[in-house]
Amino acid sequence: MIELIIPQRRRDLGSFEVGRVLPFAKRRMVGPYIFFDRMGPKNLAPGLPREADVRPHPHIGLSTITYLYDGEIMHRDSLGSAQAIRPGEVNWMTAGRGITHSERFERLRREGGPLDGVQLWAALPDGREEMEPGFWHYASDALPVFGDDGVSGRLIAGQLAGVVSPVKVDSPQFYVHWTLRAGARTSLPAEYRERAVYVASGEVEVDGQRVEVGSMAVLAAGTAITVTALGDAVVMALGGEPVGPRYIDWNFVSSSPQRLEQARADWAAGRMKLPDLDNEEFIPLPPKLGAMPEPMS
């Protein structure tokens, strides 16, 4: 059963749009996932301005998960990682006690072409928020593939229905990319307390209720649900066990508001190392928006 449908809120970045889904006022997190952004879809002409790049910026207390349907993004971070991500691959960066990185569209700037993908943040669980930062890249053929009767699934991260992804995770969770032909059906088991389904393209029914493209259906706990494709569709399913309430401020996530204040001070004072291969510019600390918000859960 669907508890809530969250429509994406589109934001124009000049060269392309981003659709924000999480956090949402009525539902801040799904399992450990505290942030969900859809990039594109957009066909870009050569000569994309450098202002479209995401300059070096910091994170704490979370992992970022970048997954593309089309295009290419170049990742560089303060650990020395320099990795292009392409469709079907996974870039998993764990910030822990602190990391900085940039995301640049260098190939698209040279050649043009489509850009389409999703970026998630997973909040780290208690006891691991201050872990050592790390970066892992997984090729597309490393991810397990499953399905039949017009349904193809790829387990991006975690574990679901006995299938296990090699992608490193820090708490019980799952993240699936499904491709469904028109009329095909698949089931999402009830093995986690919190689950959601996002429609990336096409149109589907979730337990008989229509969910439009760009929307996320947050599911009730305790029962398996059926996803039916009304036409050819791409669907992302995600969720897991809650990690507890978390505060979010700019690019920082923590169970402690005081830790967020420290992260802001560290970035403002230049105490967070920039990427070795991309250290000539950075995103300045934005102004604080009023009082500390309520924790998300």
Rank of each mutant, 00 (worst) to 15 (best):
R28F: 03
A220E: 15
G183A: 06
Q209D: 07
G31S: 11
S255T: 13
S254A: 13
A122H: 02
D266I: 04
D276E: 14
G47D: 08
L219F: 12
Y192I: 07
Q173G: 03
P275R: 11
P284E: 12
D141L: 12
D249I: 02
S81R: 10
D207K: 06
E3C: 06
D207N: 13
S140I: 00
M236R: 03
Q159F: 01
H177E: 02
E191V: 04
E72T: 09
G183L: 06
I6H: 10
G231E: 14
P46D: 06
G96V: 04
L277Q: 13
G31P: 09
I248F: 08
A291K: 15
G96K: 06
F24P: 00
S140F: 06
V145L: 12
N279P: 02
Q119V: 00
A184N: 07
F252N: 02
Y247A: 08
G222F: 13
E294A: 14
F105K: 08
K42R: 14
A200I: 12
E294P: 03
W92E: 02
R181N: 07
E89F: 09
M93N: 08
S165I: 04
D141I: 00
P144W: 09
D12R: 09
A217L: 07
P172V: 10
A52Y: 08
F174L: 08
Q262W: 13
S297Q: 14
V90Q: 11
E132P: 01
S102N: 05
H75R: 07
G239D: 03
